[in-house]
Simulated scan of single mutants.
Amino acid sequence: MAAAYPASTRTTSLRHRATSSVSLPLAVIAGLHPKRNRNRTLLLTLLAIVSLSVFFVCSRYPIPMSPAYLRWPLDSEPPAEDQLVLPVQPHPPETAPKKQKHYQKLAGGRPSITLTPEQELAAVSSFLASLPQNVIPLSVDPSLPIDPELVLDFDTRSPRAAEEVERVVEDVWSRNPVLLYGKLYSPPTREIKSILASLNLRPPPFTMDVDMRDDKEVLEPILFRLTAMPELPILLINGQPVGGLERIREMHASGELHALIKKAGAVIGGGRRRKHGK
């Protein structure tokens, strides 16, 4: 007859079997992946070190997250609003001092070249005559000297900028010794065009109908300022205005206009087609 075991002994035996059945697989898994346990331990250690470091830095150098009057100590009265020292705000781009825009135009400490009225007239005329699509921006103030960078195709801050400007002056008046700024439907403009056409010039006179251009609002006052002429048409010979219609009529009748045009480099009668001999 089998001996009877107490109830407590049977309970302990069952608990030991359950524990053995759970711990045995864990031991086997731990034995199969020893590197995973080491990596996990290392990661936990690094996280602990980082957490301690962040706590130390934050406690040593607190970061203000609220206005000064909210951070004021609780055991004292907060300061009045007019006693707070607020940080100075920088100028926004649209209200920046004008000097800042001036210094932005400096390159290597060298400012942009300044044009005389004669040079400005030559630069504007060269710019307009070189390409039909060239226009003066409507944002330009015609009462002030124009920015050289708008009408010149070279670096206006270079050491040779003055020499380049002189080259532009020579080139534009040698290519266009006779230049007429006028209006398309203006009787004085038509009469001057007729006088010039009768001379058969070579190179032919360059004529521009200012009233038909998109930039007429700024171009007209620029021409008036640079030539001291009160109205269109404006006839330029070698870059110099020769006067109004009455003066041009007198010069044409006396031959003075012919002499002035020849001196500028244009050939009178050079544009006429000549018939060859036998």
Rank of each mutant, 00 (worst) to 15 (best):
A107H: 13
N37T: 15
E120L: 12
D214S: 15
P73Y: 10
R274L: 05
L219Q: 02
L199E: 01
P205A: 04
S174F: 01
R213V: 01
A161M: 03
E118K: 07
A30L: 07
I29K: 13
S23M: 13
F127Q: 05
N176T: 03
G255N: 04
G243M: 08
L84I: 12
L152M: 09
A162E: 05
S112E: 00
G271I: 01
E231Q: 04
L106R: 08
R36A: 14
P177A: 02
L26Y: 07
R15W: 08
P159M: 03
L44C: 14
S158E: 03
H276S: 12
L131T: 15
I192E: 00
T9L: 15
L260P: 07
Q133L: 11
V169N: 00
D211N: 08
T11A: 15
D155Q: 12
P137T: 07
L236V: 02
G109H: 11
E149C: 09
L43Q: 12
G277P: 09
K263M: 05
T41V: 13
T12I: 14
P145K: 01
V124D: 02
G270L: 05
A161C: 06
T114F: 10
L219N: 04
M251E: 02
D214P: 15
L74M: 06
G243P: 08
L70G: 13
L138T: 14
V242P: 04
G277E: 05
K278L: 12
A129D: 06
H16G: 14
L24E: 11
P187Q: 13
F127A: 07
M251W: 03
I268C: 09
A264M: 03
S139R: 13
I136T: 03
L44R: 15
Y103H: 13
L235T: 02
P177C: 10
K35S: 13
P187C: 14
A228Q: 09
Q89C: 13
L70R: 11
A259Q: 14
V57K: 12
N200R: 01
L46V: 09
P92W: 10
R160V: 13
P145Q: 05
S20A: 06
T12A: 15
M229I: 05
Y181S: 00
P64R: 06
A259H: 09
L42R: 15
L226P: 05
L43P: 00
E191A: 08
K262M: 11
G243K: 04
T227Y: 05
K262F: 04
V165M: 01
P241G: 01
A18E: 10
I192Q: 01
Y185L: 05
V172S: 00
I49N: 09
S174A: 04
P87W: 08
A129P: 03
V124R: 01
A129Y: 02
Q100Y: 10
G31V: 06
R157G: 03
S112L: 02
A162G: 01
K263S: 03
T11N: 12
S130W: 06
L47A: 09
L131E: 14
L138K: 14
H16F: 07
P34N: 14
L223F: 00
R160L: 09
I29E: 12
V28M: 12
Y69W: 15
H276M: 14
V57W: 08
R225D: 04
D209G: 10
A197L: 07
K216C: 02
S158L: 01
L128V: 03
A122W: 00
L152A: 07
A253L: 14
G109Q: 07
V267E: 06
R167T: 06
A96K: 13
E118V: 08
Q133A: 15
M229A: 00
L46P: 12
A266P: 00
